[in-house]
Amino acid sequence: MKTALLGVVLWLIAAPLVGGLLAGADRILSARLQGRVGPPLLQPFYDALKLWDKRGGVVNRFQNFYMVAFFAFVLASGAIFFAGGDLLLVIFALTLAGVMLALGAWSTHSPYSHVGAEREILQMMAYEPMLLLAAVGMYLAGRSFHVNALASSGIPLVLQLPGVFLGFLLILTIKLRKSPFDLSASHHAHQELVRGITTEYSGRSLALFEIAHWYENVLLLGFVWLFFAFNPALGVAAALAVYFLEVVVDNAYARLTWKVTVRAAWIAAAILGATNLAVVKLLLR
């Protein structure tokens, strides 16, 4: 119980710090890959603090409510995870967060937001099967849906679930909003949807979105860590490696269309995920 509480407190306080620093490192690494110097490491914090001071224009009353709900569900989702709770609940809360985000974008009148919201839903359709397969795989291999049971079991999940892990890396690109799958809202402005789902947000609600995204990234890296949880230090190293791999991938690919995204994610889920599960099921009888 005590460790659970500690996990939640750590999540609430440390996750945005880690997430913000990772975002800063991401921007510097991206810049270096593009032949530039890039911003200071603390730039994401400057941005968020500035947005907090900025006066926000509100299009309607619901918009900000949905954004707060998105933020709350991301927080809840991570809290369950780091308290060692049920993986299925984590995924459920994360999905609800995504729905809130899409609803918020949908509540405005901007066509860019609307298309952004549609794409967010399509993205969820794309990654959700693989996310669930990952949870089921962990259950099959580790005999539990509980994060702390999985983490303390000492089972090298990544070795039993290599296919699931690869599939998870693919959908991680979608969740981290990186090329080739940054459809609904890209970090880089120059795309057909202006800013996609965040187009109509400004000031504090936009700052909330940024901070929620940091939290979300840390939570997703927590999933990666779980694959390597038999050796916690190795897990942290793997999570960082995966994150920077995603940054490199972001810089080495063009953005693909939603059809390709859904197809790629489902094929990955079907082939990598399902085959892996079948093998695990047969071998671990």
């Binding site: 593009q34 032949g35 530039r36 090329s179 940054d182 880089h188 795309q191 810089n251 063009a254």
Partner: peptide, 16 residues
């Protein structure tokens, strides 16, 4: 064009 399909680093290198 690279920028239009979200390939930022290619944009940067072309302009470099």
């Amino acid at each position: 064009t690279a920028d239009a399909f979200g390939f930022e680093s290619l944009f940067m290198h072309s302009w470099r």
